[in-house]
Simulated assay, not measured.
Amino acid sequence: MRNRFFAELAAAAVANPDIVLITADIGFGAVEEFVSRCPDQFVNAGVAEQNMTGLATGMALAGARVFTYSIANFPTLRCLEQIRNDVAYHHADVTVVAVGGGLAYGALGMSHHATEDLAIMRSIPGLAVAAPGDAVETSAVMGELLANGGPAYLRLGKSGEPDVHPRQMRLCRGESIPIRSGGGQLAVFSTGAILDATLKAADLLAQAGVRADVRSFPWLDPLDTVAVQDAANRYDTIVTVEEHSITGGLGSAVAEILAELPGSAPLIRVALPARFSSLVGDQDHLRRAHGLDPAAISARVLEQLEVNRGLAAQAR
């Protein structure tokens, strides 16, 4: 995802001198192509994310189209006041880009986990929030952001995520993507780089006799409410999967919609617990430890389905 983001941004910046990239002294090994092609459109603000965001807003209000970039939670939580008061309030054309969403930088510890970012960013009025699931979705989201601008937040994986989609696509802001469909019992919604693990979990559910249709939500704000409402009417159960705290992310956004629908399908939220992790390790290790690998996702769904059946039987 990271490499695709930089490729898309560099190509756009060559054609549009108003596009500017500002980093917080990170990205070496990834930003070089952009710098070599567009040296006058790149600024290293240093390890000073608040300054980076204020600088980005000033440049945007002067006519630039600015992308800020840093690791995980640093371009969001460290400079939240500047995002809220400067970028969003002034509707500045700034896209805040975080690389390593979720537990991607797990080996560096809790300070580098981005596990509350989606909740916080989608609560800011006027800020679009995107978390693509693979490089193809990253290209589609970037196409929309480059066409229509910020304020926006783009959450990326780190690198090496497998492509789920076989070909490039266009994507409107707020549009979700059906990946598997065909009359499953469950609708499984995924956001961000955990998409591949979600599809593998759906395969395990099928082996257990539970058919699951899968839909990717690369946009959390605006959210594809039509797709959620349709799923509430057509499926027995809706499942959300995200590498984010169970508080405030995709599961919460879907729950907000379902709460206003009479007789909608029950919801199973698969996410990180609402507490900080003291574990250190690579992303795969931390996903397994926190129940976000394919086997744990499918087991969680099967367990909750059994609970729901018992509750339904008692109600009868």
Rank of each mutant, 00 (worst) to 15 (best):
R288S: 13
L154P: 04
Q168E: 13
G101Q: 01
L55G: 05
R316I: 12
S252G: 15
Y105W: 07
A128W: 02
I177T: 14
A7F: 15
Q283F: 08
V20N: 04
L77P: 00
D117N: 01
E49V: 00
V226W: 12
A119Q: 01
T237D: 09
T225P: 05
Q82W: 02
A88K: 02
G46Q: 05
H285K: 15
D25I: 03
P17S: 04
G209E: 06
R2W: 09
V280K: 14
D117T: 00
I179L: 14
G143P: 09
L108Q: 02
D93C: 03
G27D: 01
D163V: 10
E8T: 09
F6V: 06
P132C: 05
G209N: 08
G46D: 05
G184A: 03
N308Y: 15
M142W: 07
I297H: 14
P162K: 08
Q168T: 13
A131N: 03
N308F: 15
V43G: 07
T237V: 15
G102Q: 00
Q168L: 15
A114Y: 00
M59G: 04
T76N: 01
D221L: 09
G249Y: 10
R122K: 05
L199T: 03
I257V: 11
S277A: 09
T247P: 06
V129K: 00
S36D: 14
E33M: 12
Q41H: 12
E256S: 10
N233V: 08
A212E: 05
F189E: 04
D93I: 05
L311K: 14
H290M: 06
R78F: 02
A187W: 06
S139V: 04
W219P: 06
R275C: 07
G249D: 10
R65K: 14
S245K: 02
V97Q: 01
S298Y: 13
L108R: 01
L311P: 04
L9H: 09
G58K: 03
A15L: 14
R65G: 05
G133C: 06
V307P: 13
A104L: 03
A98M: 01
L127C: 05
T198H: 02
R65Y: 10
E8D: 15
S181F: 13
F189T: 02
Q304W: 15
R170L: 12
E137N: 08
F74N: 00
A313N: 13
V136M: 10
A197E: 10
